[in-house]
Simulated scan of single mutants.
Amino acid sequence: MGTAGVRTVRAGIFTALCVALSSGAHVLLSGSPVPLLPFLLVSAAVFAAAFALAGRERGFARIAALLVPLELAADTVFTTGRHACYGQAGGPVTGPLRSVGVDLLCGGGSVGTPLARMTAHGGQVTAYPSGVHGVPGTALPWLLLAAHVAAGLLAALWLRRGEAAAARLLRAAA
């Protein structure tokens, strides 16, 4: 397998793990699935970033400078897609939005539907919980932002370590 093959495999594994974790956490917090099109858009963006970064060894700061905004953008895309397809209350959007292209965004299914059914609060899906383990609902957005920044930094560290290991392996093989 050539260099492009190794890059593709590494980027694919990284994408699968990161997007699965990100969308799974999003489904757990929101109680509703992620529409398929936003999921695929985020997957393509993460794969492209991981593939581009896998070309040569880069430092943690450069990787983190790309991955933290990418994590925040993924959350924005998931949230926007969820609100467009399922509405604020979690039910399917009907009415005039269907006539102006929501079917393009929402068609094709959802990701995480079984997980969303398990996390629905007493059968009632909410946009986000009002509070988590004693944390007031007003602090939740800040905790979510901190969690996304931490996830981006962790992903950057993971990608950096993987990149360093791959570089050592290629140098040893050469």
Score class of each variant (00 low, 15 high):
96 P>R: 13
4 A>C: 05
20 A>S: 15
71 E>A: 14
10 R>G: 13
140 L>G: 00
134 G>C: 05
147 A>Y: 09
52 A>C: 08
3 T>Q: 12
85 C>P: 01
1 M>S: 13
40 L>N: 06
108 G>M: 00
88 Q>W: 15
12 G>P: 12
81 G>Q: 04
57 E>W: 07
172 A>M: 11
15 T>M: 10
99 S>W: 13
133 H>V: 13
140 L>K: 00
98 R>K: 13
59 G>W: 04
109 G>M: 02
78 F>G: 00
101 G>V: 11
53 L>T: 05
131 G>H: 02
16 A>D: 10
173 A>C: 08
134 G>K: 03
166 A>V: 12
144 L>R: 05
63 I>C: 04
100 V>D: 11
72 L>V: 11
14 F>A: 14
156 A>M: 07
139 A>W: 07
17 L>H: 10
100 V>W: 13
117 R>M: 08
39 F>G: 05
171 R>T: 14
34 V>E: 05
103 D>E: 15
107 G>F: 01
52 A>S: 12
129 P>E: 09
68 V>Y: 00
136 P>E: 06
149 V>P: 01
29 L>E: 11
7 R>I: 03
156 A>T: 02
127 A>I: 02
153 L>M: 12
9 V>Q: 10
31 G>D: 02
99 S>A: 15
120 A>E: 08
170 L>P: 00
131 G>Y: 03
10 R>Y: 12
159 L>A: 15
161 R>L: 15
59 G>M: 04
16 A>T: 15
2 G>D: 15
89 A>P: 03
137 G>L: 02
86 Y>K: 08
106 C>P: 03
86 Y>C: 07
18 C>I: 11
34 V>K: 00
30 S>D: 08
96 P>Y: 11
126 T>P: 00
78 F>K: 04
10 R>A: 15
84 A>P: 06
94 T>N: 09
165 A>W: 13
94 T>S: 14
100 V>N: 06
123 G>E: 01
156 A>E: 00
162 G>F: 07
125 V>N: 02
147 A>F: 06
56 R>Q: 09
29 L>M: 12
15 T>H: 09
107 G>M: 05
154 L>W: 13
139 A>T: 06
164 A>N: 04
17 L>P: 08
77 V>K: 01
50 A>W: 08
155 A>R: 05
152 G>T: 00
37 L>D: 06
143 L>F: 09
163 E>V: 03
146 A>E: 00
115 L>H: 03
39 F>E: 04
139 A>V: 10
153 L>V: 10
50 A>T: 03
98 R>P: 06
58 R>Y: 02
73 A>N: 09
91 G>E: 15
